[in-house]
Structures are given as structure tokens and as C-alpha cells.
Amino acid sequence: MLSWNEVSKSFGTRAAVDAVTLAARPGEILGLLGPNGAGKTTLMHMAVGLIAPDGGTVSIGDRGSPRSPEARKALGVATQALSLYDDLSGREQLQFLASLYGISGRRASRQIDWALAFVGLADRAGDRTKTYSIGMKRRLNLACALVHDPDVVLLDEPTAGVDPQSRERIVDNVDALRSLGRTVIYTTHYLDEAERLCDRVAIMDGGRLSCVGTIDELLEAHPLAPPSSATSARSGSESSQQPARGGGKLEQVFLCLTGRSLRDE
């Protein structure tokens, strides 16, 4: 559905993404994990056409390059930064975005109502976004990614900084997207979320793809990851950057593959 084929991208002399080949299958949730600076965001930006790869290709199924408007209509993106207008209401944000995707009239109303109900914001849809909590803004950000009914949804740390209730709701929403047949690319530093949600996980480090597979496959391939070293690495890194958290089995694999050194970007 979404595939990166031998894609590379450098910024100056630093290779942000180095010859990565990866494909998300239709209807699956693919976790894209890695420490800070691993190249996840660059890979995501190439997927939505914000950055052109130096080498290789990105394609959205049979719609081709994400730089084409047709391919972009198949993509829904919830960026890590909350891309919301404070002085618009939740409903107005979605109406505006629906217009950009060429959706209007009854179809737009139906889609907006569905998206608001899906993320649990129907009751506050008329309130301006600046009155929303962080958790509500995150959920609205997710609704923004879904309002035009995309086939592929890219979620970049959709639960960052939210309260447990909103986090639970967002995770449930993402899980529901699978049952609706959407393909989801999910990046997070919360490994328990990835372990709970993802059908497959891809781990990146230093711009390269370290591994990809189901969690069981990864555990099988990396059986020697010691839990104790994982714990010490976590406590050592928490003071300076967002660490990989939770997800006991996956965290062992993650630390085994990416090591314990700090990744200051």
C-alpha cells in the first residue's frame, strides 16, 4: 500500500535515511520505531511528499508518488506537532480540511460527524480549539488525519504528552482503524503501545533499517537481549531525551538493536 524502495536522503554530509526498503501491507498497523535521529520523521516526510528522496522511490499503491495530488488524497497524517488553528472550532478545522481534499456537502458533513464521534469530540465540536486540553487536541489532530477517509494513515507519536484517558482512547481508535481496513504507519517512543497495536514493527537506527517483522519474529531473531540492561539503559536516558518506554519484550529487542548510548540530535 505504501512502500519505500531503496530510499536515501542526506542533509549536508549527514545521511538521515540510507537505502531503506520497507512496505506497509494493506490493512496492517506497521510500527516505525527508533531512537531520536534514527530517520523516522524523514521517512515519514518522504511518504507524504514533503521531502523528495535523493535516491530511490516512494509510492502509494497504484497511485504513484506522494508528490502527486491524487496520491496525497489517499494519505492521512497526524503530525507530532499539533497542526491546529486555535481560533477555529473542532468542526471548522475539519470542514476546512475536507474542503482542501475536495469533499463538500453531505459527504463532508457525514465524514466530519463520523470523525468527531470517532475521537470522542462530538460534544465539544463547536468550541474553539484553544479551549481544548492537550488530550483533546491530540484527538482532534487524529480526526484531521481521518476526515477525508484515507486508505493510509500516518501517525507520528499521536499520544505524546497526553493524559492516560486520552491515550487509551487514541490507542483504541488506532486499533479500530485496523478493523476498518486502513493501513496505519505508527511511530512512537512508547513501546508498550507498539507491542499492543502493531502487526509488524520496523526498527531504525542511524538512518538504516535494523529489522522488520512481527514481535515474535524479532524476538526469535534477537533472543539474547537482557532485561536488566534494558532497565539500566532506560533510567540512564530519561533525563535527556524521550526514552523507549514499556513493552517488555519489544523493549529488549529495541535496546539490543539500538544500544544504550544517548542519541542527542
Binding site: L50, R72, V77, A81, S83, L84, L97
Partner: peptide, 9 residues
């Protein structure tokens, strides 16, 4: 928010 606009078709 400009990022979102630039990702739109």
C-alpha cells in the same frame, strides 16, 4: 499548520 497544508493535495 503550514505543514498540514503542504501535505494536502
Amino acid at each position: 499548520t503550514l505543514l498540514r497544508l503542504r501535505m494536502a493535495p
